[in-house]
Write a protein that binds this DNA or RNA. Structure first.
Lengths: 222, 222
DNA sequence: ATTGATAGCCTATCATTGATAGGTCATCAC
DNA sequence: GTGATGACCTATCAATGATAGGCTATCAAT
């Protein structure tokens, strides 16, 4: 199987004139191919050899462009979450009412996760626990780019909660993190258990966001 | 490294009289060792050779007791969730008031996840999406024992919601699943992002459960 | 045009991993 | 005893991520 693919690649290389990709060009090509394969077979079922074959280069050549196999997934993940951030920014701009905005941010988040299950999985459902080695609690982002990208998006939610609760409220972080947990919970379950007999998705989303709303409302009344 | 461990095992085997474990005995021993190693290094960082070495047998011998490496983790996972079910049953018996019971079930769930991060990860944060092959939507449990075990526990929550909302309320499933998503969200995030600057855990738990409570209360008032 | 450096690519090869094949032998029921 | 069972072993696979070391297309500076 691999030998045959390798044979094809070599044969093509003999017939076609040798053309090398320009700096950065091949790198983008690898990312594009990897993204496609991730979508087709799931991120966990794609090997470096499959990527290399699809690109048309040898497997070790990948390492000239990326430090490791994970680095490829990581970069795709960061880029993917940058689009979430953009979506959040657009949503925030569209809904001046912070109450409505929280709702729409939550929906955008869940939607993003469902549309990009592989990227979401890499960022927030890692196999191994991520994070810096013990004793290094600073610079978390450098050790978990996926988290860093996700959190830039998370900022929009936190700002909106601050707008509702007042910027000085020490509870803002608690509420923002709780709402994050809430939307993450549904998103990750829908991704990891697609065959579960779920209730209608819209009803679930609405119920969860209603929980957040009624909590915020009850807190406001105090 | 492996050679040395192998040498030690062989030497011991030469000195000690050959003693074979009785049927079922070795199997339990393997599970116990695997559980310990999972806790020490994380479930994803334990290899079959490490387990075999710790048990004192050769790596292929594991396959006389388990069909695959995953099967070991799977069995531990099922057993682990059976303890959650027991905990749920005890909690349900202790709190006759369904409102209070929902609260305590949620707390028990989160606690369980934090105390058994590896088992929780295996059951609800799989690397690949679980489920039956396309076209086979029945008998989900047989294809995902971890989920099956978890859902037996989930039943307690659903029953409690039914007690609050009335058994005929079609919304019971939506609410129960939403609350499940809610507690799962916090649990999985605390497990996968332990280094994140979380707010105080108790405040987060309380905020999330308060969200569920105020939603249930607002629904009741209608 | 020549040259030197950069970088893209290759072949060969590792170590590690989960898993299988086939044989040996302790144990136990009869 | 004796045969069946099954626990165990050695040898060996194929697949995977990764590294070592060499070749050469490309391009800027001379």
């Amino acid at each position: 199987m691999v030998d045959r693919a390798d044979f094809v690649r070599k044969t093509v290389a003999m017939i076609e004139p040798i053309r090398r990709a320009r700096t950065g060009e091949r790198r983008e090509q690898i990312l594009a191919v990897a993204l496609r394969l991730f979508g087709e077979r799931g991120a966990g079922n794609v090997t470096t050899r499959q990527i290399a074959e699809a690109v048309g280069i040898s497997q070790p050549s990948l390492y000239a462009h990326f430090a490791s196999a994970d680095a490829i997934a990581e970069e795709l993940c960061v880029r993917s979450f940058d689009t979430l951030q953009a979506r959040f920014a657009a949503t925030a701009a569209e809904y001046p009412d912070p109450w409505q905005r929280v709702d729409m941010l939550g929906r955008a988040y869940i939607e993003f996760g469902i549309e990009n299950p592989d990227m979401y999985r890499i960022a927030f459902m890692p196999t191994r626990e991520s994070g810096p080695p013990p004793g290094m609690t600073f610079d978390l982002a450098a050790h978990d780019p996926g988290l860093a990208a996700g959190l830039r998006a998370f900022g929009s939610l936190r700002d909106t909660i601050a707008e509702i609760r007042g910027r000085d409220d020490a509870h803002v972080d608690v509420i923002a993190q709780a709402i994050w947990a809430l939307v993450h919970g549904l998103t990750s379950l829908l991704i990891s258990k697609p065959y579960f007999p779920w209730a209608e998705r819209e009803a679930l989303v609405e119920a969860l966001l209603a929980m957040a709303r009624s909590y915020l409302a009850s807190q406001k009344a105090r």
